[in-house]
């Protein structure tokens, strides 16, 4: 099996360029920059793993997010690092040939391939609400997970059930971790997830040969370790008690905190506030709308998107005003938290 180092030097990539690539990758994986040489060393020896991607009850938004990423060089290199052996949306093969490719990859890389899943799995009425090639989604997932090294649930539907699971959940939609019990499952939620978070998780697995450190919801801590609120550039307004009350008042126009307009930032763990979207252009709060909390379980059924969080939901509202006097200290704390997060992640690497 060829290593990534072989692949890159065969395509004329210099060592300096490779080191630069690894510096970017280290940043992408939210590791401290001092780890770039170690990442380069590990990655040069990494083998190209087989990847099988299954799509169930989903809208293809996750695949769109991944394939329309803004930094083609980096993303393409990462995608070149894996052997994507089965993905219905992108593969040229169809019908029996496609299913044969999946069976072949499962046999050839038994115990070693990565299984990526987007979409939830319907289990009501014998799983009849989702079938593919004459097989129910739930059977196909169980069959494909058997020989996988790990399963990555891409998006909120695969991670938590998502929109298909919303009340009254007519198809009995379930998450991947509801079905797969005997394999490591990594949840990469979001509706859709940020592309670099998806590639960052894959890159971490390639670099270190193991799954990243996860939180209680099985989300990688490197990207989901902090709330949107804690990393939000509007946080100083929250601390000063400056809130937009409607979407067209003076506060909204002045870019004040959207907490009272229902922003779910305080209870939502994701990297939107730092990584942002569309080549780092913006994220919902920067565009003037509160966070919907799409990377949290059952976000669709958690009440109105426009109702302010109750103190009981997260216990943070008592801090309003009291932190106003320590604006600089809050900034220092944010920087400290970021460092702490990176240290924690690097130890595990």
């Amino acid at each position: 099996m060829t290593t990534l180092g072989d692949t890159l030097s065969a395509s004329g990539v210099s060592r300096r360029a490779f080191l630069k690539f690894c510096t970017a990758l280290t940043s992408l994986m939210a590791l401290p920059p001092s780890m770039a040489p170690a990442v380069a060393q590990a990655l040069a020896k990494a083998k190209r793993p087989s990847v099988i991607w299954l799509s169930f009850q989903e809208c293809t938004g996750c695949v769109e997010s991944l394939t329309r990423t803004n930094s083609p060089t980096l993303e393409n290199l990462i995608l070149d690092l894996v052997s994507l052996d089965y993905i219905e949306t992108l593969q040229a093969a169809s019908g029996f040939a496609a299913e044969e490719a999946r069976q072949h990859a499962m046999k050839e890389s038994n115990g070693q391939y990565l299984l990526l899943v987007d979409g939830s799995i319907p289990v009501a009425d014998g799983g009849i609400y989702g079938t593919l090639a004459g097989e129910s989604f739930v059977d196909m997932l169980q069959e494909s997970a058997k020989g996988a090294a790990a399963v990555v649930a891409i998006g909120s539907c695969a991670s938590f059930g998502g929109l298909p699971k919303a009340n009254p959940n007519p198809t009995g939609a379930r998450s991947v971790s509801d079905i797969v019990k005997d394999k490591p499952v990594i949840n990469v939620p979001g509706c859709p997830p940020i592309a670099v978070v998806m590639t960052g998780v894959l890159a971490h697995y390639l670099t270190f040969g193991k799954i990243p450190e996860l939180d209680a919801q099985r989300r990688p801590l490197a990207f989901y370790g902090e709330t949107i609120h804690d990393r939000c550039y509007r946080r100083p307004f929250y601390d000063q008690g400056k809130f937009a009350k409607t979407f067209d008042d003076e506060g909204a126009r002045s870019g004040w905190c959207l907490y009272e307009l229902g922003c779910k930032g305080p209870i939502t763990h994701n990297a939107c506030a730092t990584v942002k979207w569309n080549a780092g252009t913006s994220f919902p709060i920067q565009s003037g709308h509160g966070c919907l909390g799409c990377s949290e379980p059952d976000f669709w059924d958690n009440g109105s998107f426009y109702k302010a969080l109750a103190t009981a939901d997260w216990g943070g509202a008592k801090a309003i005003g009291t932190a106003a006097a320590v604006g600089v200290a809050v900034g220092a704390a944010a920087a400290y938290a970021a460092r702490k997060r990176q240290n924690r992640v690097s130890k595990e690497g």
């Binding site: 210099s14 060592r15 300096r16 080191l19 970017a24 940043s27 920059p33 803004n70 930094s71 060089t73």
Partner: peptide, 28 residues
Amino acid sequence: HRNEAGEIVADLLEVCDAPVILRSPVED
């Protein structure tokens, strides 16, 4: 660091005598 499309892929502050990207790697 920018990619071929000119987008920033890493933006660092380094504390050292010279950033490693400036040195010639022995392999090269």
